[in-house]
């Protein structure tokens, strides 16, 4: 694994993503998702909202890290809040 030059933060990042995916799979098996229309312009399933949330979170992080001096933890906080809003009402 040396060639992949793992670091602790990236390892935590990818394990979080992997556990979210695993969790979503289990959730899907227990209660299958129903496509619905929230505040997003399209009807989405749970997985769609997760994907949109992760992608927009990436952009939130890039915008904050690139163009402001605000701490990255703040970006993480906003992203988590955004994810919750998106998953619940999106």
């Amino acid at each position: 694994m040396q060639w992949m030059v793992w670091t602790l933060p990236t390892a935590i990042f990818f394990s979080t993503i992997a556990s979210i995916l695993a969790g979503m799979t289990v959730w899907q098996l227990i209660s299958p998702t129903v496509e619905r229309k929230g505040f997003l312009p399209i009807a989405t399933t749970r997985g769609d909202r997760l994907f949109i949330g992760l992608l927009t979170s990436a952009y939130i992080h890039l915008a904050i890290v690139g163009f402001t001096d605000i701490s990255l933890w703040f970006a993480l906080g906003i992203s988590i809040l955004w994810m919750v809003i998106l998953m619940r009402w999106g």
Partner: peptide
């Protein structure tokens, strides 16, 4: 992704966090 948060010189690598992203975006 692992490369993007490190400064890699030959066999040694240093963790630099978001530095490359700041540099690239600006």
């Amino acid at each position: 992704v692992n490369y993007s948060v490190q400064d890699i010189l030959g066999r040694s690598a240093f963790f630099v966090g978001s530095e490359w992203f700041v540099q690239t975006l600006n």
